[in-house]
Every structure is written in C-alpha cells, then in structure tokens.
Nucleic acid binder design. Structure first.
Length: 351
DNA sequence: CACGCGTGGTA
DNA sequence: TTACCAAGCGT
C-alpha cells in the first residue's frame, strides 16, 4: 500500500508548521485561507501576527474590516481577508463562534470553496475527505501518469476517485498534509527529487520517465503593460487618500487618487479627467514624482505620480475619502504600488 | 466556465 | 530579465 510509505515519510520529514502545532479549527481555517495561491514562507509571518491579534473567530468578528485588511497588507488576493472577516461574523452569529463541520455549511461560508471545505473536514475534523489542490493534482497526476489537463472537470473527478482509493480511512488529516508536503518538497513542479520520494516504487510517471513533463500545462500570453497616473494632494501635512470599491482590484484598500490612461491620452490630461470623475475636483499639476512600476497577475503597470494642488478645502472626510498625516499613512491598508508611493511621499516630506 | 484577483520567489 | 509559478474562490 503506497500510503503507508507516505505516512512514514511524513512523520519523519513533514514540515513543522505553526498551524500544525495546535488542533484548533479556527487556526486551520486561517492558515488555509492565507495559503490559497500563496507560499508557506510568505504566509508564516502573516499567520503569526494575525493569530496574535485575532486568536479566535469572535476577536476577528469584532475587529473593523480595515484593521483586518491592514494585517493582510502585502499578502494579496484581498477578497480573502474581506471574506474571512464576513465569515467570522456569520460564525459568531449563527454557530456560536465555532466553525461548522458539515460540507454544506462550510461551503456556504464566504471564502470557503470545495478545496477549503475538504481541507477543514480532513485536517480539523478528521473526516475522510480528499483536499484536492495544486500539490495533490501534481502528485496524483504523476503517480498515475495521467497525461491530461487536471483542470478539466472529468479529470478532476478522476483524480478525486484515485485519491480517495488510496486514502487510509481515519488518517485523512496526515494523508492530505503528507501529499501537500510531498508536492512542496519532493514532487516539485520542476526537477522533482524522485530519488528521495516515498512513492517512487509506485509512481507510474517515474516508471515511464514522464514525471518531468507532467502535469499537462497550457501556454499563457504575456500580460500587457498599462499606464496609470496618481495624484499626491496635500494641504500642509495632510494627504488625501481614497478608498477603492469593495469589489475588483485591491477592493476595500486605500490609495492615492488616480487611474489608467486611455489610448492617446497624455499623463496630465488623464489625471485631470480622473480626478474630476472621482472627486469632482479641478487640480493644477505641480510637478512629476519618480515613476513606479509593478506587476499584477494580468497586467504590468507603469505609474506616473504627480504632486498636485487644487481647491482642497471642500473635500471632507467621507466613506471613500480621508485626510491623513504622512506619519499615519502606515496605519491605512494599501496595495503594493500605493504603499511604494506612500514611502516616496514620506521620504520627500522628510527632505 | 473562463476570467479576474496580488505578491514575491526562483530558474 | 522574463517567465512561471504557489494549499483557490467568486462570479
């Protein structure tokens, strides 16, 4: 039975991770959300800070969303933080602060999909489910030498069947995490360390010499480059920042007002247009600040910031607009690009 | 169901 | 440096 070798390997070589040290469903939940499309090394410091500040669902539910987003800043995919916060409030109101254990109830919570519900059931509640994610897809695809696109629904079902067929009943928690560690440490996307793999004797891809070319991949187009402008508006030591809509790119985060340049439009005209749209404000551009670049998943952006002046006295604080002092910019959740600009602002002001 | 959603690490 | 990736989810 291949799973015996796997579980033995896991007990000796499995990673010692903070969310594995305690058996608290809330801790497993937070870790699972943070780990979505995010590496363990990246999550580690975020997880520790988050758990120290929000040790349970009640603490998370009581906190304002903005503080949760601030703790999340830099992790990316901020819908995860918004959904985590929403779900915490539901858990407090509907489930007395404890995560539900059924597949249906878990899946109904915002931010918990098929994988996370299965992972919680297996890891936190010892139910015999397969938590099929990226590592398991790769490992199982190679183990069974399936030259198929694992994202196709019928292939997904086949992987689930195959995985369940080797899942040792009663040990789903270890089994799933063992496969994840195997995928992260041994059965890596490129150059897998098959010589050290506890499943080497059972691996059909290794037997056929196809492990390097699995799983099947689809070529992607390079992301386009987009141009953007932003305005640094200030009166004395107060800077104007705006809050992005709850949905979409960097939803709910704060930043400097601005937007994308349309085709054939100049930097300055774009900025004037965007500020009129967003703030109803006519501004004078004083001088350009150093341009900043950043790569998102679907596009790269080149941002040209400008220091601006305008009739700012009419702009009062409101839900999506706020004046903050330079030294308080750090207490406001921002995306990477706005954070870089905030650093420039702080540094410029310091000189 | 294909697409949008962030960021930092690695070859 | 560019390209590709890394414990998915919601719409």
């Amino acid at each position: 039975m291949p799973s015996e070798n796997l579980l033995t390997w896991y007990s000796e070589h499995g990673r010692d991770l903070p969310w594995r040290r305690i058996s608290d469903p809330y801790a497993v939940w937070v870790s699972e959300i943070m780990l979505q499309q995010t590496r363990v090394d990246t999550v580690h410091p975020y997880y520790k800070r988050f758990m120290a500040r929000f040790p349970n669902a009640a603490a998370l539910a009581e906190a304002p969303l903005e503080e949760v987003l601030l703790m999340w800043e830099g992790l990316g995919y901020y819908a995860r933080a918004r959904n985590l916060h929403r779900a915490a409030r539901i858990i407090v109101e509907r489930y007395d602060g404890q995560l539900p254990q059924s597949e249906q109830e878990l899946n109904a919570l915002p931010g918990i999909g098929r994988y996370t519900a299965d992972a919680l059931r297996a890891i936190a509640f010892d139910q015999n489910t397969l938590a099929l994610e990226g590592n398991l897809r790769r490992v199982l695809t190679r183990l069974f030498d399936l030259h198929l696109d694992p994202r196709r629904p019928e292939v997904e079902r086949e992987l689930r069947r195959r995985g369940m067929s080797i899942l040792p009943r009663g040990r789903a928690s270890e089994f799933n995490q063992a496969l994840m560690d195997l995928g992260a440490l041994i059965c890596t996307p490129r150059s897998p360390a098959c010589h050290a793999c506890p499943l080497a004797a059972d691996c059909l891809a290794l037997r056929n010499g196809t492990q390097e070319q699995l799983p099947f991949r689809q070529p992607k187009r390079p992301p386009p480059l987009r141009h953007a402008v932003a305005a640094v508006l200030h009166e004395n030591d107060n800077f104007l920042i705006t809050r992005r809509p709850e949905d979409g790119l960097l939803g709910g985060l704060w930043g400097f007002p601005g937007g994308f340049i349309e085709d054939g439009e100049s930097n300055r005209l774009a900025l004037i247009r965007v500020l009129k749209e967003q703030l109803g404000l006519k501004v004078d551009i004083i001088n350009p600040l150093p341009p900043l670049g950043h790569a998102y998943t679907h596009f790269r952006v080149n941002l040209q910031p400008f220091a601006c002046r305008g009739r700012l006295s009419g702009l009062r604080d409101r839900g999506d607009m706020r004046w903050v002092k330079a030294e308080d910019l750090d207490s406001v959740p921002m995306g990477r690009l706005d954070r870089m600009l905030a650093r420039v602002v702080e540094r410029t002001l310091h000189d």
